[in-house]
Simulated assay, not measured.
Amino acid sequence: MAYLRALLLPFSLLYGLAIWIRNRLYDWGWMKVTAFEKPVIVVGNLAVGGTGKSPMTEYLIQLLSPHYKVATLSRGYGRKTRGFLAVKADDNPATSGDEPLQFKRKFPYITVAVCESRVAGVKRLIAEGHEVILLDDAYQHRALRPGLAILLFDYQSVDKPKWLLPAGNYRDHFSERRRADLIIVSKAPMFSDENKKIKLRHLLGEKRNVPVLFSAIGYRQLTPLRPHPEMPGAILEADLSVLLLLGIANPAPLHEYIAANTGEVVELRFSDHHSYTPADVQNLIRRFGEIANPHKLIVTTEKDAQRLLIPSLVNLLADLPIYVIPIQVVFDPPDERLFQQTVLTYCREALATG
């Protein structure tokens, strides 16, 4: 791995130079930046995937939607459509992308939209009367200036070397954290080491007055992929065998959670945003059949579920006990109070002056 990293390092240096120049062009005003009077909140990261942007966006939806007309906007990674699209619950991932579809199915009462141009998308949503716009994965979209930028770092990797692509997994310079208004260390253990928290707050916040907060992932009750009278709710038990079906960027926390609460975990892993095929399902059936324990089931994520619930796969999956494990962001109470206060105050003040 170290040898491969060394071979890729010259490309990382070139990539880093290009990103640095691009950022400076925006900072110096040589490239156009658009700001908005309405509240625009960006959730993003500096690394590639796996920091929990989607659960954080869902947390914001639940926090803000009781008070404001909320819309989410993202690029719609993996979709085969172009331009602005309002996502519908009966869409498929090829139309809207898997994460926007997940948002719409979980929160049908809000507007979920996708658009390559975040500026054009925000303008349209504001024109349609939306009061707060949440942008999922738009920290690097410098053509838009957010009113509040929330930057996420993964607890397990934030203090490790920060190599840029392709030698590493950082897509922007670590120094660009200076643009954040809130920094969240995500996927922290429920009872994090206080000394490490102090170290990470110093590393991420430096001497700037930027809050560095900590959040964990909370796992909720398993639910059937498709409701069925012969598939009641399931619980994780010590004598249970689980086949984990995963197509996400960072499956380690989920694997650890399942392993800690069951007797056996078999993982069938694909790349992030993988589009499942009938051949994949046949492989899943074979792997599941190889598990000797009769007390067994299949567990997948909410994001994977969107890519499984497509017409070409539904019949193939009909007889499999597939369960989805929803996740949610969990803050320490003091951090949660500060987070909610910061977000709600920003929205209230932006709408009062906008």
Rank of each mutant, 00 (worst) to 15 (best):
A305V: 03
I21A: 12
L134S: 10
P227I: 01
L144D: 06
R220D: 14
K303W: 00
R124I: 05
A6F: 15
P146H: 14
A2D: 12
R171E: 06
F36A: 03
L13M: 12
G233D: 12
P294H: 01
I184V: 13
K303S: 01
T345C: 03
L25D: 10
Y346G: 09
E131N: 11
L7D: 09
L351F: 03
F103E: 11
K197I: 00
M231F: 15
A167I: 11
L225W: 05
L320M: 08
L144H: 08
P224F: 10
V314L: 15
Q306C: 14
Y257N: 07
L344H: 14
D332Y: 06
N283K: 15
A318M: 08
P253V: 10
N261V: 10
G218D: 09
D136S: 07
R22M: 09
S241Y: 06
R145C: 13
L200C: 11
E128C: 04
L313F: 12
G263T: 08
G52C: 06
G147I: 04
P189H: 03
L204A: 04
G52I: 07
V42F: 12
V33Y: 05
A127T: 03
T301G: 04
S157F: 11
K187F: 04
R226Y: 12
E336D: 10
L64Y: 11
D193L: 08
A352K: 14
G263R: 12
R307L: 02
V266N: 06
R348W: 05
K123F: 04
F103G: 11
D91A: 06
R22Y: 07
L25C: 15
L73R: 00
D193N: 15
E116L: 03
P253Y: 10
G168Q: 12
A292K: 07
L236H: 05
A216P: 03
R220Y: 11
K106I: 11
N283C: 13
A138L: 09
G78W: 06
P294T: 02
D193M: 06
L338E: 13
Y15Q: 02
G78F: 04
E116W: 02
N23M: 04
G263A: 07
P93L: 14
A279Q: 15
D272N: 13
Y59Q: 09
K197A: 01
E230K: 12
K207S: 13
H255N: 14
A260D: 05
T300Y: 06
I291L: 03
R179G: 01
A318E: 12
A238Y: 03
G233T: 11
A71G: 00
V42Q: 05
G49M: 00
L152K: 02
L313K: 13
A318V: 07
G49Y: 00
L9Q: 04
F339N: 07
K123H: 11
L101H: 08
A86F: 14
P229C: 00
A71T: 02
E302P: 03
A35F: 04
F331L: 08
K187M: 08
L9F: 10
P251D: 00
A2V: 12
I248T: 00
A259Y: 09
S275R: 14
V132H: 11
N283D: 14
E176Y: 14
Y276R: 02
L351S: 04
A352F: 03
L164H: 03
K187N: 06
R269T: 10
G83Q: 08
I248H: 00
M231K: 15
